[in-house]
């Protein structure tokens, strides 16, 4: 643990960038499967169930699951350690501060990060821990067949209006987090280039809008049609 803390500031940032980068690769995969909650094809329920089955049983994915959880924990832990160090670095605040032109969302990474973490715990309790047999599946108008029936677990949650609205707000906050995160990861890894950096920033902007928007479409559908 002490070695973990004693890593240099730059090493911590590089680890943050790699862990965060891995999470950003995972998100579109998650979204791709989530889309099949919506009736986009006739057998969308079957496709969704097959995808969930694949994601929970395929050996390579099981390995990636461990990597993913490790990435979450490392990203959280270092995010927190770095933030505490940053607060300590300025014990006396300015009377009048914050007029500099900055990357706006970067100022709220800890706040959006903490809120996303809280949501993730709820998210895990609703799905992942159910599979592990630690929590009971979310209740709602539909009967959840077994602890692998993620489809009706999701439908039960989204038919709850409060849950859907909170989910949408959280995804907007996730978008704010990602907007800074995407280009920041490249900067932390030193991957800047006069030619490519503008494209990285543009792709980051698009990513931070499209991915959360994709996730938002699902509760939106339930809010409108249920």
């Amino acid at each position: 643990m002490s070695k973990f803390l004693r890593f240099s500031s730059l090493t911590k940032k590089i680890i943050m960038a790699f862990a965060g980068g891995f999470l950003m690769v995972f998100l579109p995969v998650h979204l791709g499967i989530n889309f099949f909650i919506l009736p986009i094809t006739e057998n969308h329920q079957d496709i969704f169930r097959d995808a969930v089955h694949f994601m929970t049983t395929f050996p390579l994915i099981k390995v990636m699951e461990i990597v993913l959880i490790a990435a979450f924990i490392i990203h959280l832990l270092y995010g927190f350690i770095l933030q505490v160090q940053n607060w300590v670095a300025r014990p006396v605040r300015y009377k009048k501060e914050g007029w500099s032109h900055t990357s706006f969302f970067s100022k709220f990474m800890i706040h959006t990060g903490v809120i996303i973490t809280i949501f993730l715990v709820i998210h895990f309790m609703n799905f992942y821990f159910v599979r592990l047999g630690l929590t009971s599946p979310p209740e709602g108008p539909y009967r959840v067949a077994d602890d692998h029936d993620f489809y009706f677990m999701a439908v039960n949650l989204f038919t709850n209006k409060t849950y859907s609205i909170v989910y949408i707000v959280l995804l907007v906050l996730l978008g704010f987090h990602l907007n800074h995160a995407f280009q920041s990861a490249f900067q932390s890894l030193g991957l800047t280039h006069s030619k490519y950096t503008p494209y990285i920033k543009a792709i980051g902007d698009i990513y931070s809008i499209v991915v959360p928007l994709g996730f938002i479409l699902i509760p939106l559908y339930f809010l409108i049609y249920y």
Binding site: S9, K12, K13, L82, Q85, N86, V88, A89, R90, S100, H101, T102, S103, S106, K107, M109, H180, Q183, S184, Q187, S188
Partner: peptide, 10 residues
């Protein structure tokens, strides 16, 4: 005891 960079660019 300087802080860490959060790529805020101020």
């Amino acid at each position: 005891g300087f802080g860490n960079c959060t790529n805020t660019y101020a």
